[in-house]
Simulated scan of single mutants.
Amino acid sequence: MKHCLIVDDSRVIRKVSRHIVESFEFEVSEAENGRDALVKCEESMPDLILLDWNMPVMNGIEFIAALRRLAGGNEPKVVFCTTENDVAHIREAIEAGADEYVMKPFDHETLQMKLQLIGAA
């Protein structure tokens, strides 16, 4: 079974995201900031990461830069899930190593489409 790590400081967003991703038959784990997510990735690299931008301790951009430097860190598909919607933020996320970008709030259909685009669904 494929594994998805949901990284968001909002417990509500993690819960909603979990419900959607589990419907795609992913095993799901959660982290509330980038540093906790990095530890989880070092323990077991997920197939997919849904990543918030604005978090305490380590934000999404800092996390993805650190992730991509890990052994196997280029393997997970990373989807930024954020309220940041200007072109500069989207460009920064893609240049940092994100595979796709989705705006919050997102729904089942939107996320499914994005995952199909990157070959993760």
Rank of each mutant, 00 (worst) to 15 (best):
residue 32 E to Q: 10
residue 32 E to I: 09
residue 32 E to D: 15
residue 32 E to L: 15
residue 33 N to H: 12
residue 34 G to E: 07
residue 34 G to F: 10
residue 34 G to L: 08
residue 38 L to A: 11
residue 38 L to G: 11
residue 42 E to W: 03
residue 43 E to Y: 11
residue 43 E to V: 15
residue 44 S to D: 14
residue 47 D to E: 11
residue 47 D to R: 04
residue 48 L to Q: 00
residue 49 I to E: 02
residue 49 I to L: 04
residue 50 L to H: 04
residue 50 L to K: 07
residue 50 L to Y: 04
residue 52 D to M: 02
residue 53 W to M: 05
residue 53 W to K: 04
residue 53 W to Y: 13
residue 54 N to A: 10
residue 54 N to K: 07
residue 54 N to T: 04
residue 57 V to M: 06
residue 59 N to S: 02
residue 59 N to M: 00
residue 62 E to C: 05
residue 62 E to Y: 03
residue 62 E to Q: 09
residue 63 F to W: 08
residue 65 A to Y: 03
residue 66 A to S: 11
residue 66 A to N: 07
residue 67 L to S: 05
residue 68 R to G: 11
residue 68 R to S: 13
residue 68 R to C: 05
residue 69 R to A: 15
residue 69 R to E: 15
residue 70 L to M: 12
residue 70 L to D: 08
residue 71 A to C: 15
residue 72 G to H: 10
residue 73 G to P: 10
residue 75 E to G: 10
residue 76 P to H: 13
residue 77 K to V: 09
residue 78 V to L: 04
residue 78 V to M: 03
residue 78 V to G: 04
residue 79 V to L: 07
residue 79 V to A: 09
residue 79 V to T: 04
residue 81 C to H: 10
residue 82 T to I: 01
residue 83 T to P: 00
residue 84 E to P: 01
residue 84 E to Q: 11
residue 84 E to D: 15
residue 85 N to E: 14
residue 85 N to W: 13
residue 86 D to R: 11
residue 86 D to G: 01
residue 86 D to S: 08
residue 87 V to D: 08
residue 87 V to H: 07
residue 88 A to K: 15
residue 89 H to I: 01
residue 89 H to E: 05
residue 89 H to C: 12
residue 90 I to R: 14
residue 91 R to F: 12
residue 91 R to D: 14
residue 91 R to W: 08
residue 91 R to Q: 15
residue 92 E to D: 05
residue 92 E to S: 12
residue 93 A to D: 06
residue 93 A to N: 07
residue 94 I to F: 06
residue 95 E to G: 08
residue 95 E to F: 11
residue 97 G to C: 02
residue 99 D to T: 15
residue 99 D to K: 15
residue 99 D to F: 08
residue 100 E to Q: 09
residue 100 E to P: 09
residue 100 E to T: 09
residue 101 Y to M: 01
residue 101 Y to T: 02
residue 101 Y to F: 14
residue 101 Y to W: 07
residue 101 Y to D: 02
residue 102 V to S: 14
residue 103 M to K: 07
residue 103 M to T: 13
residue 103 M to F: 05
residue 104 K to G: 08
residue 104 K to S: 14
residue 104 K to D: 03
residue 106 F to C: 10
residue 107 D to K: 11
